[in-house]
Computed example of a mutant assay.
Amino acid sequence: MKTIRKLILVVSVLLASCENESFDPLIEKIDVNSELFNNLRTISETTTENSETICLTFVYPFNIYLYDDEGNISGSEIVQNNVQFVELLGQVAIDNAIGLSYPIVGTSNGNSIEINSNFELKETIEACIENQIIQYCNNILEEPNCVWKIKSQTDDDIYNDALLDFYDDGTAIFYYNGNSYRTSWVSLFIEEELHLNIHLEGTSQTALDWNFNWQASIIDENTIKITNEEASYIIQKNCNIQNNCDYVEFRECEEEIPLVANFIFENYSNCISSFVSSTSDIEYQISYHETYRDAENETNALSTLGYKNSKNPQLIYVRVKTDTIVEIVQIVIVATSCDQDLK
């Protein structure tokens, strides 16, 4: 699968061996049609220079023992690098096997480890691959200047065109029907399956509908499918989109203090009024507040000429008042690096 190949690792094996050594009785056989053999081939398909992160590293050269179709050792071959290892694994016949002599010493996340059996090797490789899949999933979700548009795969299309904006601190914003919900998220493995845990703050029906460990399938770097027992969605990445009231999100470049920007609310008022009502000749009184209670009570209004955020991203409550209605709208303000393109 293309996605998995992007994050597969380089491997080298630290084994003391020489060309003339006798066959070691501690050799453990690995059948070509086994899951462990497939994992070895998978994890060795990407060379060091193409691997951004290596969570399991062995050191070349090392000795591979070769078995014939009757299960007997027929010889051995020393491999010097990843290319040779991949070639050797591809040449072994389907009904044959290879053998490794334990213990194997290597490094995982900077720590020295000793692997003493095929079982331990399998566990180590699987944990490594899972870690890389999680990291890859996080990287594509956290990509700056991108939001994820939701489309239902079932008849229930109430959340079609809702949006998720993921941040690299484990928070997100869920945009739906003119409202925004502060969200936390984490990707994880449960019973050997990738999941995306999503948790919206509050007790709204929207939160109840979305607060799950969603089973996640990475279709490609722009598309992820998430499912639970009752719902199934495709979330599609959209990048470099200009500020739009459909997102109820406004971004400004940070200034002297990292992750803090100056927000001129006066510049947003026309945009906010445009999605509160389609009638253009209505006069609005708009005020901005840090809490829902302040917006409801029309107290502690923020200056519309300059406001510095206290969190990033931060929810702001906008009170929109006419002669006949009072509506409170949530927006999100985000301070972003001036080196990045604004959405």
Rank of each mutant, 00 (worst) to 15 (best):
E266P: 07
N118W: 02
V329W: 13
L15E: 15
L305P: 00
S217E: 15
F23T: 09
D168T: 11
G202F: 01
T48C: 09
T227L: 02
G99D: 06
N82M: 03
D24E: 14
Q330K: 15
S337T: 12
E230L: 08
I115M: 00
K237W: 01
G110P: 04
N312P: 07
D281H: 08
S232H: 02
A261S: 15
I140Y: 02
F174A: 11
P25R: 12
K321I: 13
Q135D: 11
T42W: 04
R319C: 07
F263N: 06
H289S: 01
Y167A: 02
A295Y: 03
K343V: 05
N244M: 02
S274F: 00
F37S: 06
Y65S: 09
I104K: 04
F275D: 09
N179R: 10
Y159E: 01
S204I: 08
L196F: 13
N262C: 09
E254M: 09
N179A: 13
V86Y: 09
L26V: 12
E221Q: 09
T107C: 00
F119P: 00
Y317I: 04
G75P: 03
D168R: 12
L196A: 08
Y175T: 13
E252T: 07
S337R: 14
V11Y: 11
N267M: 11
I140T: 04
P103K: 04
T304L: 05
D294Y: 01
S273A: 15
I272P: 09
G170T: 08
A97H: 03
C18N: 14
G71V: 06
L40K: 06
L305S: 12
G106A: 02
E229Y: 02
N300C: 00
K343G: 15
C128Y: 02
N38P: 00
D169V: 06
L100E: 05
Y60I: 01
C128G: 10
L305N: 07
E201S: 13
Y67L: 03
I234V: 04
F58Q: 08
N270A: 12
I333F: 14
I129C: 03
T227C: 03
I113P: 00
F119R: 10
E114S: 07
S51F: 03
E327H: 12
V79H: 06
N145Q: 05
W214P: 11
E126P: 00
S34F: 06
E77N: 02
L40Y: 08
L36P: 09
L15Q: 15
Q285Y: 10
E87H: 03
N131S: 15
C137G: 10
Q242A: 08
L9M: 11
R41N: 10
V260M: 15
I78G: 02
N244F: 03
N270G: 06
C18L: 03
E254P: 04
P313S: 09
R251F: 07
E120I: 04
F23S: 10
W185V: 05
I133P: 05
F58C: 05
Y102H: 11
C271D: 10
S277A: 12
Y136H: 11
N72D: 06
S278M: 02
N111W: 01
P61L: 04
S303H: 04
L7A: 12
V332E: 15
V13H: 06
T279F: 07
K2E: 14
I218A: 04
R5A: 13
E123F: 06
I30C: 09
S17N: 13
